[in-house]
Structures are given as structure tokens and as C-alpha cells.
């Protein structure tokens, strides 16, 4: 299983998937030519609206679903011909994961450990480490159906680490969890990634989660990747720029006075507040203040600088025709 140490964690070329029609539904072209390369040891987020194809992509990468077209490798193993080997080195969990309802935490972990072929001694040791890591010590013998949503999710994450995977797929891992538990799960994931060099691929609706966790991010829309890169790279790429908000005292300001300045993307004036979008705050702040104050009886009271977040990028990408 070591053939792929130097390989990319994931390499996909031209992946297509169409769900066949049923009596009630038309065929759905869920993925339309996905090309993707992910380095080992990174945390990679796949963002996109509902129906974008995120879960389909994760299902294909975990071999739960076969692609109709295209090729790919996971840690060097061929997605179409070496599925068994892939299943040995990956693991998956999803938000609202379900397990056998009346099996306890230990029984579920033991069962999944056995499915991965882990010998008893090793399995028991691994279970102990995971139970401690995810704070499940007090719930060892609690049946799955009596666990709270947060505990179920912690069990799901424990299960997903049973086989020491090299690539971990998380399909909306914190959906439906309260912020405190979500935060603790994010911290655990970051820690595992940093300590063990585990590659983590996650889908999420939560932009702050993606921004906190991810080294790289891809936006998926209508089965296609429409943007991919580091968070900052994406923000720059779609030219959302920075926002400078200036509170002032003095006579009403004429926005035409800024028309000669370079790098101004948008100007909004409301009461005694000017909101200016600029391409680069470092270059534009000084000329902007000068332009505002020169020859005017204007006093700058407060300056606030806002960086766009991934939510803004996501909204911008969602409305951009592709």
C-alpha cells in the first residue's frame, strides 16, 4: 500500500456522472467534466450550493459510486480498477451519519474496525485512542440511538479514523451541530491534519469552516468546478477587492471627486459615511484620504477596513454566468 507516497492524493480527469432516469425523475447530469488535483497532506474544501454535485463527487472518490466517464487516481490507485485498494486507504463520514442503532459506541467502532480487517489487539488499542480523542469515554456502552447529535458525529469521526486513512472524506461534517461542538470538531481535524499529515477533503456550506480549515478550496456549480485555489487567491481572482469605510464630519461629499483615482471599484455614500471598494487597500488608502480631505472642510472621524470573506466570493461566483 506504499506505492503512492510521492503521488498526488487525488488526481481526476474529465469525470462525468449522470444519474439514470426513474419513473418519477428525469436523468440528472450531476458532474460535468471534473478535473482536479489535490496534494497529499492538504485540507481541501469543496463548496457549492445544494445540487452542485458535491456529494456525488465525494461518493465517486470513495468508490461508492462509479463515474460514467473520465479517469482518476487516489494516492496512485486507479479509481476504476483498484477500488479495493482505495477503500483500504480512505475513509468517509458525513453529517447526520447513521450506524446500527442499538450497537454501542464500542460495538460500532469494533465492527467497523473489523470491516477494515484490523487485527483484534491493534483494533482495541485504536478504539481506546479514538474514544479518548473525541471525548467518548463516558459513552462507551451507550447505544447509538441514545447518543446526542454531537456525540453521534464524534462517533462518526472516530469511525472514519479507525483504519488510519491516508485520505479522509467528510461530507458536511458539522451540519446540524451547535457552534461549540462544530468548533471542537474543526480543531480536532486541523490537529490530525497537522500531526499525521492526513489529507482531508470536505464539503461544507459553512464558509467560515472552509476558510478556517482549508489550504485550498474549489467551488462547484452545476457539476463543474468554476473556481479553485487558496482562499486569498480566490478573493483576488474574482476582484472583490477590499472595502474602506470612512466616517467623516463636514459638508456633503461629491463622489465625482474620486473618479480620477486609480483602483476604485465602487463608491457608496450614506449620511456621513463613504464606503469605497478598492482593488488593494495598501495602495489606495493614502490617495483616497488625500482626495477626501484636500481643499475640503472635512474631518475624518473613523476608518474601517473590511476584507471580503468566502461568503462574498461564493455569492459572487453563484451569480456569475459560466
Amino acid at each position: 500500500m506504499n506505492r503512492s507516497i510521492e503521488m498526488k492524493a487525488i488526481s481526476l480527469k474529465g469525470i462525468h456522472k449522470t444519474y439514470p432516469p426513474s419513473r418519477k425523475a428525469e436523468p440528472v447530469h450531476a458532474l460535468r467534466g471534473i478535473d482536479l488535483e489535490i496534494e497529499q497532506g492538504t485540507i481541501f474544501s469543496i463548496l457549492g450550493p445544494n445540487g452542485a454535485g458535491k456529494t456525488t463527487l465525494i461518493s465517486i472518490l470513495t468508490t461508492l459510486l462509479f463515474p460514467d466517464e473520465g479517469s482518476g487516481t487516489i494516492c496512485g490507485f486507479d479509481l476504476l480498477t483498484e477500488q479495493s485498494q482505495i477503500r483500504e486507504i480512505v475513509n468517509v463520514t458525513s453529517g447526520n451519519a447513521n450506524f446500527t442503532d442499538n450497537f454501542s459506541v464500542l460495538e460500532n467502532l469494533n465492527y467497523y474496525g473489523m470491516l477494515y480487517g484490523i487485527p483484534k489487539g491493534l483494533r482495541n488499542a485504536k478504539i481506546e485512542v479514538l474514544v479518548e480523542m473525541f471525548g467518548l469515554e463516558a459513552f462507551r456502552h451507550t447505544p447509538f440511538n441514545q447518543l446526542s447529535t454531537g456525540l453521534k458525529q464524534r462517533l462518526a469521526l472516530s469511525k472514519s479514523l479507525m483504519n488510519d486513512p491516508r485520505v479522509l472524506f467528510l461530507d458536511e461534517p458539522t451540519v446540524g451541530l451547535d457552534p461549540q461542538i462544530s468548533e471542537s470538531i474543526r480543531r480536532s481535524l486541523k490537529e490530525i491534519n497537522q500531526k499525521e499529515g492526513l489529507t482531508i477533503i470536505l464539503t461544507t456550506h459553512q464558509m467560515d469552516e472552509a476558510e478556517f480549515l482549508s489550504d485550498r478550496i474549489a467551488f462547484l456549480r452545476q457539476g463543474k468546478i468554476i473556481a479553485e485555489g487558496e482562499g486569498d487567491e480566490l478573493k483576488r481572482g474574482i476582484r472583490l477587492g477590499d472595502v474602506i469605510r470612512i466616517q467623516y464630519a463636514g459638508p456633503p461629499f461629491n463622489p465625482d471627486r474620486l473618479s480620477l483615482l486609480e483602483g476604485i471599484l465602487e463608491v457608496e455614500i450614506e449620511d456621513n459615511r463613504i464606503t469605497v471598494s478598492v482593488d488593494d487597500r495598501g495602495k489606495r488608502l493614502d490617495p483616497l484620504i488625500r482626495a477626501l480631505t484636500s481643499g475640503q472642510h472635512m474631518v475624518v472621524k473613523d476608518i474601517e477596513i473590511l476584507e471580503p470573506d468566502l461568503e462574498d466570493v461564493f455569492l459572487e461566483l453563484a451569480k456569475t454566468p459560466h
Binding site: 461508492l64 477503500r87 451519519a97 447513521n98 450506524f99 477494515y116 480487517g117 469511525k159
Partner: peptide, 17 residues
Amino acid sequence: YSIWNKSLKHEMAAPVN
């Protein structure tokens, strides 16, 4: 039981045949 518990995908994601 796996179908009723909706856990089938987790089991079939493991290297079992």
C-alpha cells in the same frame, strides 16, 4: 438492518465484498 439504519454506505465504503 443496514438499510433500515441507513448505514449501508459506511459499510460498503470499507474494503469488503
